[in-house]
């Protein structure tokens, strides 16, 4: 549960270049290179670490191993798990609803994350100019990141995007007759994407911090050379903030995979209509807790772990090509 609903704000605000740097090409570096060890230090270290070690063993590593075992069984919580080999996985690939949940989640991640980050970067660049009221705007734009994950926000979203409500009426002004997005299987996913984009404030704050670190002289020199705003953006801003961008992409992507509450509430608990908001977690929840297929749900969990691991690995690998670190690295 501790991994549930870490708001993007929570993760993102720690986002900083040092984090990206640390995870950079050199791999994960320890905080301070160890110099001297003695048994007293060891004892103190393990004592201080004991809560974490216990937590890791009993709440993370142990459950992961158990879940791996369960994924090869049929288990309904009432009777003992029964070994069925790869059956859960073959069932999963043959299950159109599982494929639908992969499709919905991928769509949500692939559209939601880039749009959100683009909005965050654009607004961050606007706010990077020192103007009167800057810190007020920054605070106001950040606020949705804190409340966006709540049930309240999802309830309000359901209202705003339903038939005859504001979004529907606005569309009609432009002559688009779609009706409410909530009941429309092809539109409701965009209501969810809008909800995540609304929370652009968290990555924005990180972009802002990154932008502040870009030396002004670089821009001044470029201006002297006659570089226009687009060239300045692509040749100075983007490379200079690429570590921050990398960090944001990484965390937002992983976070987006985990959407549950807003999909559940916006669809009134059905993850519909027509499974249009059947995000991965929704389906895992339904199979595990409603249909009592704990083995199948465990298998789903492991498969997602592999998928997210793969995406993370690709991101780390790709950063060699586009993330520029000021010092060290390459």
């Amino acid at each position: 549960m501790t991994h549930i609903h870490t708001s993007p704000g929570a993760l993102a605000t720690g986002g900083d270049r040092s984090a990206a740097k640390r995870n950079g090409p050199g791999g994960i570096a320890p905080p301070v290179p160890p110099k001297r060890r003695d048994s007293g230090e060891n004892l103190a270290g393990y004592l201080f670490m004991s809560p974490w070690i216990a937590g890791f063993l009993f709440l993370v590593a142990g459950p992961m191993v158990f879940s791996l075992y369960l994924s090869f069984t049929e288990y309904n919580l009432f009777e003992a798990p029964r070994w069925i080999g790869l059956q859960n996985f073959t069932d999963m690939f043959a299950d159109p609803r599982w494929r639908q949940s992969v499709k919905v989640t991928s769509w949500y991640v692939l559209i939601g994350t880039p749009v959100k980050l683009a909005a965050a970067l654009a607004v961050a660049m606007l706010l990077a100019q020192k103007r009167w009221g800057q810190s007020f705007y920054r605070a106001a734009f950040y606020a949705p990141s804190l409340i966006g994950a709540s049930v309240s926000a999802a309830i309000v979203w359901r209202a705003l995007f339903s038939d005859d409500a504001i979004v529907d009426r606005t569309q009609k002004v432009f002559g688009v007759e779609v009706g409410g997005w909530i009941g429309d299987p092809s539109m409701i996913i965009y209501a969810l994407i809008a909800l995540t984009v609304w929370q652009f404030g968290a990555p924005m704050v990180i972009f802002l911090a990154g932008l502040k670190q870009v030396p002004r002289e670089l821009y001044e020199a470029a201006e002297v050379d006659g570089a226009g705003p687009w060239r300045r953006f692509f040749h100075i801003t983007l490379p200079m903030i690429s570590p921050v961008l990398f960090f944001n992409v990484l965390l937002e992507t992983i976070h987006s995979f985990q959407i549950f509450g807003s999909a559940y509430i916006v669809s009134n608990g059905s993850c519909g209509p027509a499974d249009a908001t059947l995000v991965y977690t929704c389906y895992l929840y339904e199979q595990g807790f409603v249909n009592s297929r704990m083995g199948f749900a465990s298998a789903m969990g492991w498969l997602l772990l592999l998928a997210v691991g793969l995406v993370t690995a690709v991101l780390f690998w790709s950063q060699k090509r586009w993330v520029h670190y000021e010092e060290g690295g390459r």
């Binding site: 890791f56 459950p63 879940s67 369960l70 919580l77 992983i254 969990g301 772990l305 993370t312």
Partner: peptide
């Protein structure tokens, strides 16, 4: 430390069921 950073990136899906059973 490396493990701790690893759990930072761990999707919680894999833990929902086994933690519940626990």
């Amino acid at each position: 430390f490396a493990i701790m950073i690893g759990t930072l990136l761990l999707p919680y899906h894999v833990l929902i069921i086994p933690q519940y059973v626990l």
